[in-house]
Amino acid sequence: MKVHAFDRSIFVRDDKKLIHELESIDDALAFLAAWPESRRGPIYQSAFRACQAVREERLHLDGARNALHCFARSAGILEQAPVSIEPWMIVPRNGRGGILA
């Protein structure tokens, strides 16, 4: 089976407020399959069909990622990518443990 990984992950929140990182079509289809049936509207159907079309090599990966992004935004579950701050990026403040020159 061919791996269909997105160039950038999409972060979404489920109904339990847990954040999921969708890195591939398989991740997206698993998330969409678990989506409550009562909340599956036309935008959901569009995203689901787009992901299936990528698996069948009828659509480019970017098309499915865009459809999934639109679905997440319209459903109000889209999350911003977490920002990682490395310790070396933090500038110490004077008088708070920083080294004075």
Rank of each mutant, 00 (worst) to 15 (best):
V3K: 04
V3D: 06
H4Q: 06
F6D: 01
D7I: 04
R8Q: 09
S9E: 14
V12R: 11
D14C: 03
D14I: 03
K16D: 09
K16T: 09
K17V: 02
L18K: 13
I19P: 00
I19N: 06
L22S: 09
E23P: 00
E23S: 11
E23M: 10
D27I: 01
L29G: 08
A30F: 07
L32W: 02
W35Y: 13
P36G: 05
R39S: 11
R40M: 05
P42Y: 08
Q45K: 11
Q45M: 08
Q45E: 15
S46C: 14
A47L: 08
R49P: 00
A50C: 05
C51A: 06
A53I: 00
V54L: 06
R55Y: 15
E56T: 03
E57I: 00
H60W: 11
H60R: 08
L61D: 02
D62H: 07
A64E: 05
R65N: 01
R65H: 13
A67D: 12
L68E: 02
H69V: 03
C70G: 01
F71Q: 03
A72D: 07
S74E: 14
G76Y: 08
E79T: 06
E79L: 03
Q80R: 08
A81L: 07
S84E: 04
S84H: 07
S84N: 03
I85T: 15
E86K: 12
E86S: 07
P87Q: 10
P87W: 11
W88N: 06
M89K: 09
M89Q: 13
I90Y: 08
R93L: 13
N94A: 15
N94C: 09
N94K: 13
R96A: 15
G97R: 15
L100R: 14
